[in-house]
């Protein structure tokens, strides 16, 4: 399996999208730095804003492009007929590609932290002692953003349309997720969407420790909060459901 993953990385040599992903990670920290400077926000506030918008609004769209490139390249360049008689199984190949997407997701998230740190230096507020914890959180958020994107990846892979269509599909999915996560206070805590969609789940877990709050607003959000264990169970279930569908979706529709 490691061999397959290394080969997947070798296949994307000279592809510009790794650089593109890292540049995209800097997209939100730049305006957020300006905003933080104006509102006299500290580094934690800047980090939370950049992470929230970067990982849960933009990253799914970036991952949709990466998915298109990785999952469709063999069909486009005709190399599948060289791979299958090796033999390499389609299932193993799908796993290897998902591993590459996960790594890119984490690289994006960590690159976002790097850009935010530069922003923190610019606004004159950076807590160096918090960096290891924020690095850990960035890695976890990169992982959760990847897992949150799995349902739309099934559709992207199965439909096998252009990159633009895939981005649009991912954008619609992300906007729905993000809007509900952003406005979860407007919905009752037991609303089905808050327990069904992945981004609200992340938000409900993260809000318990990652967001600065006053005692009043903590009382307000407390009914929405979920524990790390609940969040973990949700994503394990989501992964267990999505992975077989992704393997199914990556199989040829005509034989």
């Amino acid at each position: 399996m490691l061999n397959l993953i290394l080969c997947e990385f070798a296949k994307i040599k000279r592809q510009k999208f790794i650089l593109f992903s890292i540049l995209a990670a800097c997209l939100f920290p730049i305006p957020m730095t300006v905003l933080a400077g104006k509102d006299r926000m500290d580094f934690t506030g800047l980090f939370n804003l950049a992470l929230f918008f970067g990982d849960f609004l933009l990253l799914p769209c970036v991952l949709s492009i990466v998915t298109c490139i990785l999952f469709f390249m063999e069909r486009e360049n005709g190399s599948l007929k060289n791979l299958l008689p090796i033999p390499v199984s389609r299932t193993e190949m799908a796993f290897a590609k998902l591993a590459v997407i996960l790594v890119i997701s984490i690289i994006y998230s960590v690159a976002g932290l790097g850009a935010t740190m530069i922003g923190g230096v610019i606004i004159g507020s950076i807590y160096w002692h918090q960096i290891p914890a924020k690095l850990g959180l960035s890695v976890v958020m990169g992982l959760l953003a990847f897992l949150s994107t799995l349902p739309v990846l099934i559709a992207i892979i199965r439909l096998n349309k252009s990159a633009i269509f895939s981005i649009l599909l991912a954008a619609v999915y992300t906007l729905v997720n993000f809007s509900i996560a952003y406005m979860m206070g407007n919905l009752p805590p037991d609303h089905i969407l808050l327990s069904a969609l992945p981004e609200p789940i992340v938000m409900r877990w993260w809000a318990g420790f990652g967001v600065e709050r006053t005692p009043e607003n903590f009382e307000m959000i407390r009914p929405y909060l979920i524990s790390g264990a609940v969040c973990l169970r949700y994503f394990l279930l989501l992964t267990a459901i999505c992975i077989p569908f992704i393997i199914w979706a990556s199989r040829p529709q005509e034989d």
């Binding site: 296949k11 040599k13 390249m73 360049n77 005709g78 190399s79 007929k81 060289n82």
Partner: peptide, 12 residues
């Protein structure tokens, strides 16, 4: 084996 037109990664 060699089947149909040669299929390889164009960026490599």
């Amino acid at each position: 084996s060699l089947i149909e037109s040669p299929g390889f990664y164009p960026n490599l």
